[in-house]
Design a protein around this nucleic acid. Sequence first.
DNA 1: CTTTATTTGTCCGTATGTATG
DNA 2: ACATACATACGGACAAATAAA
Lengths: 83, 83
Amino acid sequence: MYDYDPTRPKWEQIAEVLRDRISSGGYPPKHKLSEVQLEAEFDVARDTVRKAVRALRAEGLVVTRIGMGSFVAGRPETDKSPA
Amino acid sequence: MYDYDPTRPKWEQIAEVLRDRISSGGYPPKHKLSEVQLEAEFDVARDTVRKAVRALRAEGLVVTRIGMGSFVAGRPETDKSPA
DNA sequence: CTTTATTTGTCCGTATGTATG
DNA sequence: ACATACATACGGACAAATAAA
């Protein structure tokens, strides 16, 4: 289980963990971030997970599509799309 | 119960007690200072408790976060934040 | 096309706690 | 002691979008 710092919001701490997984490569581009899955892993309400994901989305680290899910965003420049 | 010195503000005396608990380790870092709880323990109004907490906050002994609560501050040096 | 399942979006309410008046 | 506002956190319910059978 996770040891949450009571002086800071859970969603913020969860966002940090996810941000770290993304930057470390643990969560590669296209990796799916399921709300229900994160809800279970971090043992929090969906509302809390959504706040964390929203933060990452605001940072451009993840993209969300209704009915599909949230995914780790590929780096803006270094995408292998042919010119 | 507490024996308050009538010649001095209650909040000041309460602040002293709390300051002592913090420095003695009775209240370790991250320990929560609930206004409701202190209100009951010291048998004073919430305003009185708030004045005491405000004093400790001004001294940097506690940190307060909106919607979360007031907590004993960790020492400035021993923060686990990397960068 | 319809049904089912999955997932995000949005709204409701409840509870706790701080900030302010 | 009361009321209002805001922030966190939890839980439920339904809608919308997507995909697959």
